[in-house]
Amino acid sequence: MVAIEIINLTKDYPRGFWRKSYRRALDHLDLTVQAGEVFGLLGPNGAGKSTTLKLLMRLIYPTAGTARLLGQPFENIETHQRIGFLPESPYFYDYLTAREFLDYCGQLFGQSRSERRRRVGELLERVGLVEAADVALRNFSRGMLQRVGIAQAIINDPDLVFLDEPMLGLDAVGRREVRDLILELHAAGKTICFSTHVLPDVEALCDRVAILNRGRLHGLGGLDDILKMKVQASEVVVAQPSPGLVEELRRLTDGVRIAGDKLNLTVPDDKLYAVIECVRQKQGRLVAVNPVRPSLEDYFFQEFGTEKVPDLIKRL
């Protein structure tokens, strides 16, 4: 079953007052996310990730295109009964306590008093806010607000969850907890779509990703599919190298590094078999041969150039 279907979605923002011009934030996006997937929206700042999520939640309206969520047209507000959403850098009613706020959200979903009491208790426990449950949100740190935000996004036990930068403002423990939570939701068969700058999280969590840049879809598929295209080398580890072997290998490839009593080599694919043959002939011990899979970080550097990447890296 398809959970999210985006068809030709486009968003232009007007600029100027008298002489209006338009800035295209999202450019004819087509995308499908299957039910039960963890789907990542990736891209540098201004890529169109948050715009996509806001369009899907009807917080802003598209210039063109449409979408379906859980099989329903995205204009259908009743579908939100089965959807959860965490906005980027969320802000809540600061005069409420965390417990009151979550209870308020539960009421908006029409939950009964007993259901709300149970669910709010569970979620406060789940996001580690039991101690601060009755403290006004105005006294919360950014990380704590993010936890409240995640709790409110799943108060209705949604089938589809949108998370806009869920790791933002969280410390290492918080990030780990959110990762675990996403995996739990995934295991429970929920569909999760999240945008992020934190590339290791994407690598750890996502079944598939869409890479956006300047409002355009730049890549779509499994991480391996996207990164496989870029595999052009292997890392070879050799133990007990003789001086002759080191000399020979240095002639074959540039990437030879001595690490203690081992040799680490980065070998281009076209020279891999020659290197292995050389190790065999010189009686070195071949410990490992691994394809060098570039990280998403490398991918971004390659695809978008250095001008966009520093911003991306800064927020890691």
Partner: peptide
């Protein structure tokens, strides 16, 4: 301004 509407309109609220 404070974007509390983001949370509200993401729920089934017209």
């Amino acid at each position: 301004d404070k974007r509390t509407l983001y949370v509200l309109f993401a729920k089934p609220v017209r």
